[in-house]
């Protein structure tokens, strides 16, 4: 297994991060892999961390009774999966399923939440990196919501 810290600092999400912070993050990180089709997380489960995808694609899905699940978004190599760990009640808001064999670094949020409280520098660094992600995904969802290629523009 490669050193999680090396993978972590090379991951686009943490590009250019201060070495002292990556050290802390690495203490909370380990590598995982999933075969295609496996669920990485299920809606409602405790969101105990986030994943940095090294390879493979995952789908964020919502299941609906009596109908096919709907795919909300797919996330790919170099992207981050999991933001539910940031806010209470810290539960996954959708299913996460591997579409291909997936390899990722898992960062344990329970460990990070505590360290962020006691180390504002770490907390601020995380905030700076997660906030743009939230904004980008919000904008993407808005655009998706418009159904711009739909049959009857309204």
């Amino acid at each position: 297994m490669p050193d999680p810290k090396v993978v972590l600092v090379r991951h686009p999400f943490f590009a250019g991060i201060d070495p002292s912070i990556s050290e802390t993050l690495a203490e909370c990180a380990h590598e995982v892999s999933f075969p295609a089709g496996r669920f990485l997380a299920r809606e409602g489960e405790p969101a105990s961390g986030f994943l940095l995808l090294e390879c493979g694609t995952v789908a964020l899905e919502l299941h609906r009774p009596g109908r096919m699940p709907i795919v909300l978004e797919t996330l790919h190599e170099g992207e981050l999966v999991g933001t539910s760990w940031v806010i209470p009640p810290y539960r996954w808001s959708c299913d996460v399923r591997a579409l291909d064999p997936v390899r990722a670094i898992v960062v344990d949020a329970r460990c990070l939440r505590g360290k962020s409280e006691s180390d504002p520098k770490l907390g601020y660094e995380l905030l700076k990196r997660f906030l743009p992600l939230f904004v980008q995904r919000l904008e993407a969802v808005r655009l998706q919501l418009l159904d711009v290629y739909g049959e009857t523009p309204t």
């Binding site: 789908a59 709907i70 795919v71 797919t74 790919h76 993407a140 655009l143 998706q144 711009v148 290629y149």
Partner: peptide, 22 residues
């Protein structure tokens, strides 16, 4: 990438601008 898909779709789901960073 497509806006809407069932799990049978093997490709990407999401909006085009989000693909620019990839």
């Amino acid at each position: 990438t497509v806006d809407h898909a069932s799990p049978a779709w093997r490709g990407s789901v999401g909006v085009v601008p989000a693909r620019i960073s990839h």
